[in-house]
Design a binder for these strands. Structure first.
Length: 85
DNA sequence: TAGTTGACCGGAA
DNA sequence: ATTCCGGCCAACT
């Protein structure tokens, strides 16, 4: 566990329902705005199922990836009203 | 220790 | 609008 990863998880955990954050924003809040890619890597390896990582999306508005089924993430975001194409 | 990989980003063609 | 390319950082081999 590095400081950065803890920060990232903390930030992701802090995202409230109905809100979304880009990987870049999370990285910036964690201290390194250029580590957007690393954020995804951390999520993938840590598999934080206790964390609302589904509220973290890409900067271009796309969903991105997910540890489990991608459809679940999409459904949750639609349910929370954060992703309505 | 060094090389690869990937839930990314922004600019260029 | 879409595709391509280089850069960035942490985890894995």
């Amino acid at each position: 566990m590095t400081i950065f990863s803890e920060k990232v998880l903390e930030v992701a955990r802090n995202v409230q329902r109905g809100k979304t954050m880009t990987y870049k924003e999370v990285a910036a809040r964690a201290g390194n705005s250029k580590a957007a890619r690393a954020v995804g890597a951390i999520m993938a390896s840590n598999k934080d199922l206790c964390i609302p990582c589904h509220r973290v999306i890409r900067s271009d508005g796309k969903i991105g990836g997910y540890n489990g089924l991608l459809g679940e993430k999409r459904m949750r975001l639609r349910e929370e009203g954060a992703w309505q194409p």
